[in-house]
């Protein structure tokens, strides 16, 4: 903890070496977060870059006594992702997502066959609103109240979106597994 504190302090002071160390330590985590919120890798690159800038710009605001650096940096990155997506007109799509009618057998056996990369791709294929709520709720651990506040929607909408996201993912998983078994 002291080590990361020291690195962050140096990075805030503008030491390039420590900035790079911090980046190397967290880049995969940050980039995977970006991938989950994005529709594709190109969009993920944009989100990642904006998030990265934001993290280092706000680094001086980080207070290690209040949260872990991982949590703080991922929050900053999520905000950057939301800002980016908002800028690209996602808001209107949140409230009227088409509900997917896919259902799947959620046995652990078939889930285990899927790798992180494929799961990430499944998340990326979710409609935007589902994707954001799913990520914020399931992966980042936001409450529906927080999500509603961040996205400017009602808690009910947030819950609805999450429910639909889950159902869609199940269906997609099922299809993916069927495809894989045929191959």
């Amino acid at each position: 903890m002291e080590k990361i504190q020291h690195i962050i302090k140096k990075a805030v002071a503008g030491h390039e070496k420590e900035q790079r160390m911090l980046y190397d330590e967290y880049r995969t985590r940050w980039y995977m977060l970006s991938l989950r919120y994005a529709k594709n890798s190109s969009q993920a690159d944009d989100i990642f870059q904006e998030g990265l800038v934001q993290i280092f710009r706000d680094l001086h605001q980080f207070d290690i006594t209040r949260s872990a650096f991982t949590t703080w940096s991922c929050r900053v990155l999520v905000n950057a992702a939301l800002k980016y997506l908002k800028k690209h007109n996602w808001v209107n799509t949140l409230s009227d997502q088409e509900e997917s009618n896919y259902y799947a057998d959620e046995s652990e056996t078939i889930y285990d066959k899927l790798a992180t990369k494929e799961l990430t791709m499944l998340v990326q294929q979710l409609p935007l609103g589902y994707r954001i709520v799913f990520n914020m709720s399931v992966i980042e651990g936001y409450t529906h109240k927080e999500i509603a506040k961040e996205l400017g929607i009602s808690e009910g909408t947030s819950k609805s979106q999450l429910s639909k996201a889950r159902r869609t993912l199940k269906k997609q998983l099922e299809n993916l597994l069927i495809t894989n078994s045929h191959e």
Binding site: A13, H15, Q19, R27, T28, W30, Y31, Q49, L52, H60
Partner: peptide, 21 residues
Amino acid sequence: GWNVPSEELWDKAKPSFPKRE
């Protein structure tokens, strides 16, 4: 490397980082 950002992204973001005074 699918979950590793390209070096180009670092290079692009770096100029905006805090500078050593």
